[in-house]
Simulated assay, not measured.
Amino acid sequence: MIHVLNIPAITWTLTALLLLSGSYHLRQAARSPRRTEQINNSIHALMHILMAAMLWQLAPSTVLAQITVLTGAALWFIIQAVARPEFKILCSKGPGRLKCFYHSLSMAGAATMIAMMGQMSTGTGRAPTDAMAGMSMYHGNHAMTGPAKTTPTTIGHSPNLAILLTAVFTAAAITFIILLLRTRATQTTHYNTAAPKISKRADHALEALGAAVMALMFATMMA
């Protein structure tokens, strides 16, 4: 298990939030009548499940496959964001395009995080002196050889990238919180659109939560 901030309670909390978010997206995928929305929500559900699994180092042998899937998902959202306006099933309007660009960034961020976590757990990129430590130990005139001691690489090997992504997702979380508050403030003046407003509020809340989780996890990689 990878303890975020070395506090198991936070790891458990993040796991619960990721699984709840994934469940919400699965529910939305099942309820949506549009194929594109079904695919998009299914991709988001998969991303949250993979991130939860990453916290517990589950299926480490599939890290490359996970990165490949998330990279493909990022490209899928980019395609939607740059699609021509006549393809109305995709992101044909301004706000929709921005949202698709953000979702592409989220997928790419998740792929980057899994790659960095994988580097930490496998110890790749460690210094040669760390890899050689413990190869030979001497006691008096007798040499004792033992297995190499490998110090797992911390995920702070890319601190600048971690700082950048922390800032990006923190800004995203703040933006979605502002949108959520604005939606609540205008809800009372649009009684006939109460259901869409509630759905939009749930989306903003979920996006804010997801961005905050991403920001927190990248923040642990800055040291």
Rank of each mutant, 00 (worst) to 15 (best):
L5M: 14
A16H: 07
S23V: 03
L26S: 09
L26E: 12
A30L: 07
R31L: 06
S32H: 11
R35F: 03
E37T: 05
E37G: 14
I39R: 03
N40F: 02
I43M: 10
M47N: 11
A52P: 13
A52T: 09
A53T: 05
L55R: 01
W56E: 09
S61Q: 13
L64K: 15
L64I: 14
I67H: 11
T71I: 12
T71H: 15
A74S: 14
L75Y: 00
F77D: 04
A81F: 00
I89W: 06
L90V: 00
C91K: 02
C91E: 02
K93E: 09
K93A: 03
G96M: 12
A108W: 02
A108G: 01
M113C: 01
G118T: 11
R126P: 00
R126K: 04
D130H: 08
A133C: 03
S136F: 10
M137E: 09
M137Q: 06
G146V: 04
P147T: 06
T150K: 13
T151I: 14
S158L: 12
N160H: 11
A162L: 05
A162M: 04
T166F: 04
A173T: 03
I178K: 09
R182I: 04
R182W: 05
R184Y: 13
T188D: 09
A195K: 14
K200D: 15
D203G: 07
L206G: 11
L206I: 05
A208L: 14
L209R: 03
A215F: 05
L216M: 13
M217D: 07
A219C: 13
M221V: 03
